[in-house]
Write a protein that binds this DNA or RNA. Structure first.
Length: 485
RNA sequence: GGCCCCGUCGUCUAGCGGCCUAGGACUCUGGCUUCUCAAGCCAGCUACGCGGGUUCGAAUCCCGUCGGGGCUACCA
């Protein structure tokens, strides 16, 4: 029996979580759920200059909103905390010191200027740039000399000769010759750890079994494995790696703020459902292996395996996300749809949230459910029902001021005024008989005029249902004032 | 430059030696339906980067080539 799976998601929140981050989190979460394992969430904030508390809070909020709950990490706790690397500094210092003792690491007194000069020389000579091992085997006298010069020292890991081969779950065996993996820095002069030290130490200490991360970290893997070795971890206890391909932007450049929206917070504001985002992202670089594309979170957990993850990058396609969002929206029950809609109507200032308003919204939602692809379209669609100072859209006014339109509106008013029952089928029956049959008009012409007069726009939910919801008094009042335009 | 990764319709993908004259989805185009807009239905366009092998047979295996990407920090 293999050991229980523990997958970690360990972002470095230097900004809002973006599409790529979330795809990684989603895959890790799904894999943990699929295997009945643990999903661990850790914050990599060793670069204190770029990670802020706000970003950390936002990251947790985003994860929760998407339904990617973690079993171990900030807020929920666990046996291997703390889960913020900034709170684990003594742990990293301990290991760095140990590596120094073991001679796996050494102090490097080179200055940034010297290092850059070396790199410059290497570039000029067309050889692989990287640390040249200058301080690898300093004598006591040399060290004393550097110290007397007041030089500070970083801690560098010694990369032994040979190479590293590891099995990536997505890419198969990947090998690196250590000739191209220079000695790397574990800790800065002030003792603070770098990513490579912290990530490896934490993954081991937190008993992580699977590391799913972006392929930009692929070539840093030999360095992490080197840390495992120095820690004395048995090979069979190394975490297994799976490097996910990138999510690219529409123009095949790496996804960035410049070309397409990357922040998940933006999608939330636009009115994408978390389930749609997850469904779409799941299809980017993974497929269930058959033709199904509509998967629920539950199905994703059941179906997700790393073997089905692609090695090649995928382009982000907003149109497809929108299509999926529309499908998910249409699959909602009215009560669910209502719950998602209300915040958008309120923040747009269309309603304040009274019971009367909510009841009307609930009645109106069925007629717009199949007409929208994002929740942020709802305010515009239902505005006509709630607006206090109703006015026909300026673009549409000219379409109902001609004589023919006036005739349509006058006739409509005359036919509708006496109506005792105000329901969409009664309204439709009366208008069809008078405008279409008796006046001989084309439906789109006749109903178009009434539509503009009552909803204020050439585009609206179905006309007769809209008029029913609007009510008789308001409908007739709007037609009356339209005739006067 | 070096090292590493990747390469099926415009996009996401199915495909793991014969079921492929390459399937599905999104997009796009045309049509049907129709009170607008949608939704729905039908039809259509478009792909195995290229060149060599291996094999009776290759999108599937091998080599090369070209193209794309990542890394090459006291960032992650």
């Amino acid at each position: 029996m293999s050991k229980k799976v523990k997958v970690r998601f360990a972002p470095s929140p230097t900004g809002d979580l973006h599409v790529g981050n979330i795809r990684t989190a989603l895959f890790g979460w799904a894999y943990a759920r699929h295997t009945g394992g643990t999903f661990l969430f850790r914050i990599e904030d060793t670069d204190t200059t770029r990670v802020t508390d706000e970003y950390i809070a936002a990251a947790m909020d985003t994860l929760k909103w998407l339904g990617l709950n973690w079993d171990e990490g900030p807020e929920v706790g666990g046996d291997n905390g703390p889960y913020l690397q900034s709170q684990r500094l003594d742990i990293y210092a301990h290991w760095a010191a140990k590596f120094l003792d073991q001679k796996d690491a050494y102090r490097c007194y080179c200055t940034p200027v010297e290092l850059e000069a070396t790199r410059e020389k290497q570039r000029a000579a067309n050889v692989a740039p990287g640390y040249d091992g200058h301080c690898r085997d300093l004598s006591d006298a040399q060290i004393a000399d550097y110290k007397s010069q007041g030089r500070e020292s970083v801690i560098r890991m010694r990369m032994p000769d040979g190479g590293t081969t590891f099995n990536d779950l997505i890419r198969g065996d990947v090998s690196f010759d250590h000739k191209f993996v220079p000695d790397f820095v574990l800790a800065r002069a002030d003792g603070s750890p770098l990513y490579t030290l912290a990530v490896a130490v934490d993954d081991v200490l937190m008993k992580v079994t699977h590391v799913l991360r972006g392929e930009d970290l692929l070539s840093s893997t030999p360095r992490q494995i080197r840390v495992y070795q120095a820690m004395g971890v048995a090979v069979e206890d190394y975490p297994v790696f799976a490097h996910l391909p990138f999510v690219m932007g529409q123009d095949n450049a790496k996804l960035s703020k410049r070309n397409g929206e990357v922040s998940i917070a933006w999608y939330r504001e636009q009115g994408f459902l978390p389930e749609a985002i997850c469904n779409y992202l799941a299809l980017l670089g993974w497929s269930p292996g058959d033709d199904r594309e509509n998967v629920t979170m539950k199905e994703l957990c059941e179906l997700f395996t790393i073997e089905k993850v692609h090695a090649s990058p995928a382009r982000f396609d907003m149109k497809k996300l929108e299509a999926i969002n529309g499908d998910k929206l249409r699959a909602l029950t009215i009560d669910e749809f209502l719950k998602w809609s209300l915040p958008f109507l309120k923040s747009a200032g269309i309603i304040t949230g009274t019971d009367v308003e909510i009841a009307l919204v609930k009645k109106a939602l069925p007629i717009i459910q199949e007409r929208i692809i994002k929740l942020n379209e709802i305010p515009q669609m239902l505005k006509f029902l709630f607006v206090k100072n109703f006015a026909v859209e300026s673009d549409s006014i000219s379409k109902i001021t001609d004589d023919a339109s006036k005739e349509v509106l006058k006739r409509s008013l005359k036919e509708l005024a006496p109506l005792a029952a105000w329901s969409h089928d009664v309204i439709e029956g009366v208008l069809r008989k008078s405008l279409i049959e008796e006046m001989g008009l084309k439906p789109r012409i006749a109903f178009g005029a009434v539509r503009i007069a009552t909803t204020g726009s050439t585009i609206s939910p179905p006309l007769f249902e809209s008029m029913e919801l609007l009510g008789k008094a308001a409908s007739l009042a709007r037609i009356t004032s339209a005739i006067a335009l």
